[in-house]
Simulated assay, not measured.
Amino acid sequence: MLITFVSAKNSPGVTTATLALAAEWPREAFVVDADPSGGDIAAGLGRGSWPPGSTVLELVVQARHEPVGHLLQRLAVRVDHGPAVLGGLGRPGQAAAVPWAQLSDAFRALGDIDVLCDGGRFLASGGITPLLQASHHVVVVTWSTLPAARSAARLTALLREEVLPSAAALGLLVVGAGRPYSAGDIATACQVPLLGQLPLDARAARVWAEGREPGPGFRRSALQREARRIALAAPPAQAAS
């Protein structure tokens, strides 16, 4: 199954949400940093130290000679408390050189292995539209402030009406609900299903965003408890087509 997470403007947190969910995923999962503006995982989770061969561009180069599934197993960076991760692009503009359609087909064909892509902020051009269109699910991540909710409503309308082949693939994930709008109200305004909500848990989020040590209570943190609940409710890989 291929799932891509994106946000509108005014809503950071896609990387943290993707990593938190993937860490609790009930099946084997890989996180791919597909942010077209240049990925943050190497600077955050990797604390600026990331193997140069563990990136999307290296995957593309080697995929000419080796199956993508084998490459993910070999190239992805694994951390004790999290998922296997493939680093992102080095700078804006490189996304145009990635054959997202072919890569997406390879991700979709991995059977029982799920790929969760961190798509960053959605870009209408020069971005990852073929990846979104090939994804079994596209999840818009938003905060609950008025600017964030309005931006999310505009983005979901654009995705539903102009980008995605099926509106059924679209869902919403709200971070920090109730500041001031509830997750349900935002989902209603966006006209998409609410997949869940994650709390504002700064201490746990720093593990994913800044590479902090998780500590003994990390898996019991509010962020990871809710991420686990959402991940366990995800549809099985066999249901994806």
Rank of each mutant, 00 (worst) to 15 (best):
E66D: 07
P67D: 12
L72K: 05
Q73N: 14
L75S: 03
L75Q: 01
A76F: 02
A76C: 14
V77D: 02
V77I: 01
V77N: 06
R78P: 09
V79R: 14
D80Q: 13
H81W: 15
H81M: 07
H81F: 12
H81P: 00
G82D: 07
G82C: 08
A84W: 07
V85N: 12
L86Y: 08
L86I: 08
L86A: 03
G88T: 08
G88S: 10
G88C: 12
G88Y: 08
L89T: 08
L89V: 12
G90D: 10
G90V: 07
R91P: 00
R91K: 13
P92Q: 12
P92I: 03
P92N: 08
Q94S: 04
Q94T: 06
A95V: 04
A95S: 14
A96N: 01
A96R: 15
P99G: 05
W100T: 00
A101E: 14
L103W: 05
S104M: 06
D105I: 02
F107C: 13
R108Q: 14
L110F: 05
L110I: 11
L110N: 04
G111W: 06
I113H: 02
I113Y: 01
D114C: 13
L116S: 05
L116Q: 12
C117R: 08
D118V: 12
D118S: 13
D118R: 06
D118G: 10
G120K: 07
G120P: 08
L123D: 03
L123K: 11
L123R: 14
A124E: 14
A124S: 13
A124N: 07
G126C: 06
I128D: 03
I128P: 00
I128H: 09
T129Y: 01
T129R: 14
T129L: 14
L132R: 03
L132V: 09
L132E: 12
L132Q: 04
Q133I: 02
Q133E: 15
Q133D: 06
A134R: 15
A134Q: 14
S135V: 04
H137N: 10
V139S: 07
V139I: 15
T142M: 08
T142G: 05
W143T: 08
W143I: 00
S144I: 01
T145L: 08
T145E: 13
T145K: 01
L146H: 04
L146S: 01
A148V: 09
A149P: 00
R150I: 11
R150F: 06
S151D: 15
S151C: 11
A152F: 08
A152K: 01
